[in-house]
Simulated scan of single mutants.
Amino acid sequence: MKIFLLTHERELSRASNTGALAASLVPEIVERVVWQRSAPSETILDAIRSEKTVLLYPLEDDATEAAPIADFDNIILLDATWQEARKIFNRSAYLKDLPRAQIQPQQSSQYQLRRNQLDGGLCTAECVVEILRLKKCSDIADRLDAAFTLFNSSM
């Protein structure tokens, strides 16, 4: 299993970015790829071509059924503010035809470091924790969750 964080360039310099935490703590599973509008990453394109890749991104309407994350080897997660994530999605044609997954978190987000959060939305590290739990990697998920709690309280 691989979780690709398609990261907006502005996230690279933000101290509040939790994607860096996930990538540093679980580098064998989480890989950070910087999004570039005019030059899609070959790593991401190769994962998409494998046909075993899902995009974790909210569905646009209730008529579309979410794909189960457990059925996929690769998960692409947009690592950005909600506004930037929408921009990445809208400007990346290669993401449009991917099956999309959603997660149903057991609790609301604990991340309080940014304003304008989407109701019911999670930060990147929380999403990775939920994905790891869905993929039956509970020990790794617990370790990342503990590191996130420490990160969140220290900010």
Rank of each mutant, 00 (worst) to 15 (best):
T124G: 03
Q106G: 15
L77F: 15
H8T: 10
Y57K: 07
A15N: 10
K87V: 11
W35H: 03
F148C: 14
A15M: 09
Y94V: 13
D119T: 05
T81D: 14
S50Q: 05
F72G: 00
D73Q: 07
K136V: 06
E31S: 13
T64Q: 09
D46M: 04
I29K: 05
N74T: 04
Q117F: 06
F151N: 05
Y111E: 13
E60R: 14
K135S: 09
S38E: 15
D145F: 14
Q83I: 04
I75W: 01
S16N: 14
L55N: 00
D46T: 09
N116M: 11
E42D: 06
R86W: 06
K2E: 10
K135G: 03
E28K: 10
Y57L: 10
A80Q: 04
V128L: 08
E42G: 02
E84L: 08
T124D: 06
Q112L: 15
A47K: 01
A125S: 08
S41G: 08
Q102R: 12
H8I: 08
P27Y: 02
W35K: 01
E42F: 02
T149K: 10
I69R: 02
L113I: 07
A20T: 14
L134G: 12
V54P: 01
L59P: 13
D71K: 05
A20E: 10
I103V: 11
W35V: 00
I44D: 00
T81L: 13
A67M: 15
D97K: 08
S50M: 09
L21E: 03
E9R: 07
T64A: 07
A141H: 13
F151W: 07
T18P: 14
L144P: 01
R91S: 14
S108R: 10
P27D: 13
L134Q: 13
T149L: 06
I69Y: 04
I76D: 00
L78T: 06
F148H: 02
E28M: 07
D62T: 10
Q83E: 11
L25M: 14
L5C: 04
I131S: 00
L95P: 11
S13Y: 05
A141Y: 12
E60S: 13
G120V: 15
A39I: 05
G120Y: 03
Y111D: 08
S41M: 03
D62N: 12
L118Y: 15
Q106E: 07
R133Q: 11
A20F: 05
S92A: 07
V129G: 03
V30L: 08
L56H: 01
Q102H: 04
N17D: 13
E9I: 12
T149V: 13
L95C: 03
L95Y: 02
S92N: 10
N17T: 12
D61A: 09
Q107M: 08
P105C: 04
Q102P: 07
S138P: 01
P105Q: 11
S109W: 15
L118E: 10
R133C: 15
D61P: 15
V33H: 01
Q104L: 11
E28C: 09
R114N: 08
Q36N: 04
M155D: 07
W35C: 00
A93N: 12
T124M: 05
S92V: 03
D46H: 06
W35I: 00
E51M: 12
I48N: 00
S153V: 06
L98I: 08
A66K: 09
I131H: 01
V30F: 04
A22E: 02
A23P: 14
L6K: 00
R91E: 10
T124K: 02
E65V: 07
L21M: 08
I29V: 12
